[in-house]
């Protein structure tokens, strides 16, 4: 199996136990993860086509225009996996701009739905390239709020190297597992702040044979997933 396939399964695990809530995602690998979770251990999950249609096993099962998405956000019946241009140790996230907000070095997306997502329902992050440029001491613009700013729940951070969570007394970021072939030292070197490292760091679970078949033959036969991690 490939690193991308390990990441798809790690993303899928974020939604385990969530029940009949909307699984939203930004990026192909978390989208494959949500669909994999729906096809296997989380059949109640709601997944969209990225526009206004709810999908089950690739077939339409309902309607979800943006105004209803906002209602679901406010109701809290959603768990989104967003991207992040910057992320700090409490899970504060920036997708808005890099540099001073008044005159940014690089204008990005603006805050989008990140403020509302993070105060209303569980949020996880997908980082296709784990680096100190993303994992920073302080983000330039708090788009998504972290645990020190009363986030509802920042659950998981899945990267191309590792899975991180916030299972610490002050709810700051902790290394949960490293992917096959990645050392704890690799993750520490790629993180721009001090991570909590437990005494035993496990290895991220590998996809099962059935999961690999689903990913390769059913969910992503064109192998687009491999292009997202490079």
């Amino acid at each position: 199996m490939t690193r991308a396939e390990t990441c798809v399964v790690a993303c899928a695990e974020a939604w385990r136990g969530d029940g009949a809530i909307l699984a939203s995602s930004a990026g192909l690998i978390p989208q494959l993860g949500a669909r994999l979770a729906q096809s296997t251990f989380a059949p109640e999950l709601l997944v969209t086509d990225g526009e206004a249609t709810l999908l089950r096993d690739g077939r339409a099962e309902g309607w979800l225009p943006y105004r209803t998405v906002f209602a679901i956000v406010a109701a809290g019946t959603r768990h989104v996996m967003m991207g992040a241009s910057q992320l700090d140790r409490f899970g504060n996230q920036n997708i808005s701009c890099v540099g001073p907000w008044e005159k940014p070095r690089s204008q990005l997306l603006c805050v989008r739905g990140a403020p509302g997502n993070t105060v209303n329902h569980p949020v996880s992050y997908w980082i296709p390239r784990h680096s100190p440029r993303v994992f920073v001491e302080n983000v330039d613009m708090v788009s998504g709020v972290g645990h020190d700013r009363n986030a509802h729940e920042i659950r998981l951070v899945v990267t191309d190297l590792a899975v991180l969570d916030f299972a610490t007394p002050d709810r700051s970021m902790r290394l949960r597992s490293t992917h096959s072939g990645v050392t704890v030292g690799d993750v520490v070197a790629a993180t721009g702040f001090t991570l909590t490292i437990p005494e035993r760091v496990s290895q991220t679970r590998e996809p099962t044979g059935a999961e690999l078949t689903l990913i390769r033959d059913h969910l992503d036969p064109s192998n687009a997933r491999e292009r997202e991690i490079r």
Binding site: S96, P115, G116, T118, V119, M141, V145
Partner: peptide, 13 residues
């Protein structure tokens, strides 16, 4: 009234 915005830099800017 809305929750969105609380704690974020939307309030700062």
């Amino acid at each position: 009234p809305i929750r969105a915005g609380l704690g974020s830099d939307v309030m700062r800017v």
